[in-house]
Every structure is written in C-alpha cells, then in structure tokens.
C-alpha cells in the first residue's frame, strides 16, 4: 500500500518537526560554527580564547544591538512582503532631534538654549515620535498609493537624511545630559535590544497582530477577502518599524553622547541582512524574531571575530557579504526541499 507508506513517512516527518526542530536550528548551527572557527583560529593565530572572555562577548552584542533593534522592526516589514530602506536615515533624524532636547545646561551652543537639562523622558518621547512619524509616512505611502515599498522607503530614506542635515545645518549636537547618556551606557542597549525582540516575538506568535502580519505577507488578496484591513495593518507595521528605528537612533546618540547627521549610515542594509540571514523571506509570509536575533549575532561574531584576529576590516566586509548570500541560498534549498512533494 504505497499510500499507507506515504502517509506514515509524512507523519514521521511532521512529528520530527513538531518534536522541536525549529527552522532557526540551521542558522543557530552557523552561528555556533562561526564562533568555534574564531575560537580555533584564535588559539592558532593569537593564542587567546575568543569566547571565554566575558567583556568581548558583551562588546560584541553591544556593537550589534542598534542593528538588532532596527532588525526587529524590519523583520516585521519583511514578513508583510515589504522592505524598509529608511531605517538608517531615521536613526540620524531621531539622533539629532533627541540629542537637541537632551543637551545639558553647560552646552556652549545648544540648539534650543532655553530647553536644556530637560528630564530624560522628553528627548526619548520626541525621538520615538519622530521615528513613528517616519514610519507612518512609509506606511501611508505604501498602503494608499500603488508605489512599491522599495520606492516609498527609498524616498523617505533620502528625505530623512536631508532633514537630519538641515536640522542643525550639519552641525553635530553634543554635551548631552548624563541621564540621556546612560541609555547608551553599559549593557543597557543590549537589554533594550533583547527586550524589544522578546516583545515582538510574542506579538508575532501569539497575537492577532502577528497572525494578520503573516497572512498579509503570504497573500494580501486572500487577507483582504478574509476581512483583514490590509492598508490599516500595513500602516501599523511600518509605524512600528519606524518607531524601532527611532529607538535605535536614541541608543546611537546616547552611546556617542552626541547627535550627528551621518549616523546610521547603511544600518538599514545590516538590519535587512540580519533578518534575511535569520530566515525571513523577501517574498513575504516567512520570518521569525528568534531567527533575526541569531542573524544579528552572526553579524556581531563576524565583526568582533575579525577584529579579535587583527585582520583587516576589508576582509570582514567581504566575508559578511558572502555570509548574507550563503544564508539566502541555504534557505532556498530548504524551501525547495519542503515544496518538492507537491
């Protein structure tokens, strides 16, 4: 009975999956493999351990926390089948606006001389609001015009960078309050990164918001017919992504204790890379925050691993590019294998 046989093997296959073989497993293996490679090379080349160094591990995650915060938002956008190119520029605008409201009274050239030493909540809320506004612009353009997300967010990317420069006519904003600088101090950025990741992991998996996000990415037409307000939902998703970029901008300026219009350059691409390495599909409907977190850590391991080995930064970029492409190729193989049966 071939059918009975077929049925049995199918059962075995899905049982294996149900028993806990999440799609992130392969990405996690890549992360572990990379870490162990650097560990091994470390002993051979510089006679040091790569992993058994708490400080290095903290710095490693710290370096990619900002990318990680953005990537959490970008992952959701990618799940809807969209893309967000504006994240890096939004980081710059928020960094500028938040920093201008976070200057201490001893700042020599305060942007708003009458508004110094404000409670830390003010610049933070202002930064989040700027991010949300940028996201709202993205979402509205995408939901109510027929321009593709790539173009809409490209436009916002260019304009937002311009706004960041115009805001102080290119001048950096410095002398920020200690309370504000504390946001970027110690392991706080790591906490913010992991906190947002946890919140949106739960949101995507267990709430109606998450279910609708996946449905829209998998088939927007079917989503609409199923009663989902697709346009409204897309606006919410892009606004969330913008707000998270704003949060990243706050963290960036707090870490640097200044706001500069050139901040966040190319961050959008690193964030997209983290999501894609983590298994998100640009075709939509597929992606998980856990994967994105692992993808972010992979970027972190590569960056700090090369620094640790004292290898030129050039090689680092070359390898990073190769990893992004390899991750997507591997992912497609996995999909093809699971689709072959039809």
């Amino acid at each position: 009975m071939p059918q009975a046989l077929a049925q049995r093997t199918v059962d075995a296959r899905s049982a294996r999956r149900a028993r806990g073989f999440p799609p992130e497993a392969s990405i996690l293996l890549v992360l572990i493999g990379l870490a162990l490679t650097f560990e091994l090379l470390g002993w051979i080349l510089v006679r040091q351990s790569f992993l058994l160094n708490e400080q290095r591990l903290v710095v490693m995650i710290l370096q990619v926390s900002v990318i990680g915060i953005i990537a959490v938002g970008v992952t959701q956008v990618i799940i809807t089948g969209g893309i967000d190119l504006s994240s890096g520029s939004v980081v710059a605008v928020t960094a500028m606006v938040a920093a201008s409201l976070a200057q201490s009274s001893d700042a020599v050239r305060a942007v708003y001389p009458s508004l110094t030493d404000l409670p830390v909540l003010v610049p933070v809320m202002a930064g989040l609001a700027v991010g949300a506004a940028a996201g709202l612009a993205n979402g509205t353009l995408i939901a109510y015009t027929s321009i593709p997300p790539f173009i809409a967010t490209l436009g916002v990317m260019v304009s937002a960078r311009g706004i960041a420069k115009w805001y102080t006519h290119g001048q950096p904003v410095s002398m920020l309050t200690d309370a504000y600088a504390d946001i970027g101090g110690g392991a706080v950025p790591v906490m913010i990164f992991l906190g947002t990741a946890l919140i949106f992991h739960i949101a995507l998996r267990y709430t109606r918001y998450g279910k609708f996000t996946y449905a829209i990415g998998a088939n927007p037409q079917a989503a609409r017919i199923s009663g989902i307000n697709v346009a409204g939902h897309l606006i919410v998703v892009y606004t969330i992504a913008g707000t998270l970029s704003g949060l990243a901008g706050i963290v960036t300026s707090a870490r640097a204790v200044s706001g500069q219009a050139g901040m966040g350059m190319m961050y959008e691409l690193d964030a997209i890379a983290a999501a894609v390495i983590g298994g998100a599909s640009l075709a939509g409907g597929v992606g998980r925050i856990t994967g994105t977190v692992i993808g972010t850590l992979i970027l972190g391991v590569v960056t700090s691993g090369f620094t640790f080995l004292r290898i030129d930064a050039y090689y680092q970029e070359i390898v990073k590019g190769a990893i992004i492409v390899a991750a997507v190729i591997a992912d497609q193989y996995r999909h093809r294998a699971s689709r072959k049966r039809a």
Binding site: Y214, A215, N219, Q221, A222, A223, G227, I228, V286
Partner: peptide, 19 residues
C-alpha cells in the same frame, strides 16, 4: 490567487477569518 495562504500552515489558513 485569492484563497490560500500557500506558505502558511493548515491551521493558519483555517483560523484567519475567525480571530
């Protein structure tokens, strides 16, 4: 085209209109 969410599971396809 307008019915199935092809990349999603049977469960996700069933539940979507009743959430």
């Amino acid at each position: 085209e307008t019915g199935c969410f092809l990349g999603l599971s049977v469960l996700e396809n069933l539940e979507i209109a009743v959430l």
